[in-house]
Structures are given as structure tokens and as C-alpha cells.
């Protein structure tokens, strides 16, 4: 290199080359990098999500009367995913397509149970007034009692995201993940297997007409926030 360079590089040459190189490099690398890293910037830096989960984005699950006393029941909710299908407003204005990409998500609903020693299920904490509830207006106290004892669980296993299913055992039962055998009890609490925590619980509310609504929001524990349910 030294033989090729007749004159030593001057300070001015070095600086101008450095500045020019930096500018050229930035022009060449930043646009493509930002282009493909868009989702990472949106999710990790700006904290956005693809599934609308604001205070108004409630999705109906079903009626409170549909949840059985002794075992969980699965409900299906369509969550819209806004990833690459563009602006909803433009879609509606053009009139060409109002299609929205939705994911059918399985949600397990169960009444909280007392867990006895040895993992047996004790009594169900299902509010007693539901026995003769026929779909009328609920009082605020009744709603609070329901919300204290209803479990709204994501079917996505907390280990690696496979859909769990309810396995009936004698007089009891458990959530079992088909992939690596994670086991949870009827309350969605961790019982056995590889999962680092219990099942994800949705943010939900029960309205006066006895219907249950969920939002795409989970009880993410501090320190485990990397392990979000990427499947909804």
C-alpha cells in the first residue's frame, strides 16, 4: 500500500474521505436496513402492536351462561391483524376490498376452582346466582363477583406456543400441550412440564347483559416479557 501511495495522506484528505465515506455508507445502508427492520422498530422501539388492543378494541367471546360449572369450554374469537394489508380507511374508500386479516383464536373459559393438596379440584367458585340467571341485567356487584372468579385463558402454551387442549381425567382434568407436554390446572396455573409460567390470561370484562368481552392483552410477568404469545 505504501508503494502505491506516493504522497502520504494529508489530514484534509483523511477527514474528507472519512466524512464522504460515512455519508455514502449511510445513504447506501440505512434505507434498506430500515425497510426490512420496520417491524422490529415498530414493535421493540415504538412499542406498537399489530393487533388493535386499545381501550375500545373489545371482542365478544360469549355469554356467561355458556361456561360450564366443572370444566373449561373453548370459544373462538377473531382478532384482526394489521400487518401488510394496508390502511383500512383507504380500503373502505376504494370500495374494492374491506377484507381484514383475522386470526381465529381459541380462548378457554373456566370457573376458578379450589386446588386441594395433591392437585385435586375442590369446589368451583362459580357465583351461585348464575344457577337461575336467565340473561337479565347484572348488577355491578354481580359483575365484580364474576370477574373475580372467571378465568379467560389463551390456548397458546406458555412454553413454545402450541395450542393446549383440555384432557378429561377421573373427576378432574388438566390442560395438556401436545408439543412438549406442558400441564396446567383448570385455573391455568402451572402444574408440570417445561413451561416457565402459567397460561396467559386475557384482559376481559363482563358487561351488564352477561356477555364476556376480551382485549388482545395478556398478563405478561416482569422479567419474562420476551416470551410473549406470538400466536394469538
Amino acid at each position: 500500500m505504501a508503494e502505491l501511495q506516493k504522497d502520504p495522506i494529508t489530514r484534509k484528505d483523511f477527514l474528507s474521505f472519512g466524512i464522504l465515506g460515512t455519508i455514502t455508507g449511510a445513504i447506501l445502508t440505512i434505507p434498506p436496513a430500515a425497510f426490512i427492520l420496520g417491524p422490529v422498530i415498530k414493535t421493540d422501539v415504538l412499542g406498537q402492536t399489530d393487533v388493535p388492543s386499545g381501550p375500545d378494541d373489545w371482542h365478544e367471546v360469549g355469554s356467561i351462561t355458556e361456561v360450564p360449572v366443572e370444566e373449561p369450554k373453548v370459544f373462538v374469537v377473531d382478532f384482526p391483524v394489521n400487518q401488510i394489508y394496508g390502511d383500512r380507511k383507504i380500503q373502505e374508500e376504494s370500495g374494492l376490498s374491506t377484507e381484514e386479516f383475522v386470526v381465529e383464536s381459541a380462548i378457554w373459559l373456566s370457573w376458578q376452582h379450589e386446588i386441594l393438596e395433591g392437585g385435586e379440584y375442590g369446589q368451583s367458585y362459580r357465583p351461585a346466582f348464575l344457577d337461575d340467571y336467565d340473561g337479565g341485567t347484572l348488577t355491578q356487584a354481580q359483575i365484580e363477583e364474576i370477574q373475580g372468579n372467571l378465568k379467560v385463558l389463551s390456548s397458546s402454551c406458555a412454553h413454545l406456543g402450541c395450542p393446549v387442549r383440555w384432557i378429561v381425567k377421573e373427576g378432574a382434568g388438566e390442560f395438556l400441550c401436545p408439543c412438549h407436554g406442558g400441564i396446567y390446572n383448570i385455573n391455568g396455573q402451572y402444574v408440570g412440564g417445561p413451561p416457565p409460567r402459567g397460561m396467559y390470561e386475557y384482559t376481559y370484562e363482563v358487561r351488564e347483559d352477561g356477555r364476556i368481552y376480551v382485549r388482545h392483552e395478556f398478563d405478561i410477568e416482569e422479567g419474562l416479557d420476551v416470551q410473549k404469545p406470538y400466536v394469538i
Binding site: I36, Q83, I84, V103, Y230
Partner: peptide, 20 residues
């Protein structure tokens, strides 16, 4: 881990961007 998965998913959940 997180950013890599968000890069692959094209967002924070699996969806149409993931397939693309």
C-alpha cells in the same frame, strides 16, 4: 431473541407478514 423473532414475524404476532 425478541428483535429477531419480530423480524421474522414481521410484527408481534404471526400473520400475513410472516408468510411474506
Amino acid at each position: 431473541g425478541g428483535p429477531t423473532i419480530h423480524f421474522l414475524l414481521g410484527g408481534d404476532v404471526i400473520g400475513p407478514a410472516t408468510l411474506s
